[in-house]
């Protein structure tokens, strides 16, 4: 039974990683396309364009646009690199805010397709946790994905973190049109098992609001 669950979890986890990589590569391809066209425009201006008094400022604008795209790409690569390393060890010390920041950055393109934005309200004083960051991100991803898929244009997903003693509470809420979010169906049970058994937390899904509590797990319990 547990073997079957682990197999299913591996499949869903792979799908999650695939979606994040697809979103990332799409974003990077766009940045590269802008860089290529900007460089091409400078080339055109030198070869076939007529030079004018405004040429210098035009070149500077184009160069700034290239630098901006490179900076955005570097930021995304940093997030993807950190996302990939979350899987180096199943259990490790990590910061909830950083792992959420990373997931939001990597899912922004998916959300943008529906004109959905993320609003963050992070408690800066959260304790570092010893737990499974990759599974934590997977659980949050499932709810983000539900909000993105089921909602209309122009709404916001609000992500709040709070310190509760040695634990962290994460609240995902939805601002915008009133929607009766459908439950995650088959996924609900899996998420419940992940949260309760794998990362020893608590989760409550009220549709428009999802509340999750997560703490450090002892090194002894992660072996079970």
């Amino acid at each position: 039974m547990e073997e079957k669950f682990d197999q299913l979890l591996r499949q869903l986890h792979l799908r999650f990683i695939g979606k994040i990589i697809a979103s990332f590569t799409h974003e990077i391809k766009n940045h590269l396309a802008i860089i290529k066209e900007s460089a091409g425009l400078m080339d055109d201006m030198l070869r076939i364009g007529k030079s004018s008094e405004n040429s210098s400022s035009q070149y500077l604008d184009i160069i700034n646009s290239i630098v901006e795209q490179v900076d955005k790409s570097i930021g995304l690569f940093r997030f993807l690199n950190s996302f990939a390393h979350r899987m180096d060890n199943q259990f490790c010390n990590f910061h909830i805010n950083e792992s959420l920041e990373e997931l939001i950055a990597l899912m922004t393109r998916l959300a943008n397709q529906k004109r959905i934005s993320f609003e963050k309200s992070f408690d800066p004083e959260l304790p570092e946790l010893y737990n499974n960051p990759s599974l934590f991100q997977f659980v949050i991803f499932c709810y983000f994905e539900r909000y993105i898929q089921q909602s209309g244009n122009g709404n916001s997903i609000i992500v709040t973190t709070e310190k509760i003693d040695d634990s962290v509470r994460i609240i995902l809420s939805f601002k915008g049109d009133i929607i009766n979010f459908e439950p995650l169906n088959d996924l609900s049970e899996i998420i419940d098992t992940i949260v309760k058994e794998k990362i020893k937390g608590e989760i409550e899904d009220k549709g428009n609001v999802v509340v999750m509590k997560i703490s450090s797990i002892s090194k002894k319990s992660n072996k079970s």
Partner: peptide, 11 residues
């Protein structure tokens, strides 16, 4: 991608 659409149009 506004920058892409504008730059490509210019070219």
């Amino acid at each position: 991608e506004v920058a892409f659409a504008n730059t490509l149009s210019q070219r």
